[in-house]
């Protein structure tokens, strides 16, 4: 069958997906370290811009249906 050889061979179980990699490797560093560092930096950056009260914001984000 066309495309069979392209089938994903590494199914991910999201409940166990604790190994996180974000592709922002620093030159010279080992890939894993760089990725871990990249994720930490990224999350720190996002922490700084997230709306302050998550619970309240998510509850208040109520939309009307559209098309």
């Amino acid at each position: 069958m066309a495309g069979q050889e392209h089938k994903s061979t590494q199914p991910r179980d999201e409940e166990e997906a604790v190994e996180v990699e974000v592709p922002t490797p620093a030159p010279g560093a080992s890939q894993d370290q760089a990725n871990t560092q990249g994720v930490d930096d990224l999350l720190d950056e996002i922490d700084n811009v997230l709306e302050t009260n998550a619970e309240e914001f998510v509850r208040g984000f109520v939309q009307k249906g559209g098309q």
Binding site: E14, A17, V18, E19, V20, V22, L42, L43
Partner: peptide, 11 residues
């Protein structure tokens, strides 16, 4: 998006 969310879940 999942990568970011997984980052939070993990951290």
């Amino acid at each position: 998006k999942l990568r970011v969310l997984d980052g939070y879940r993990s951290r």
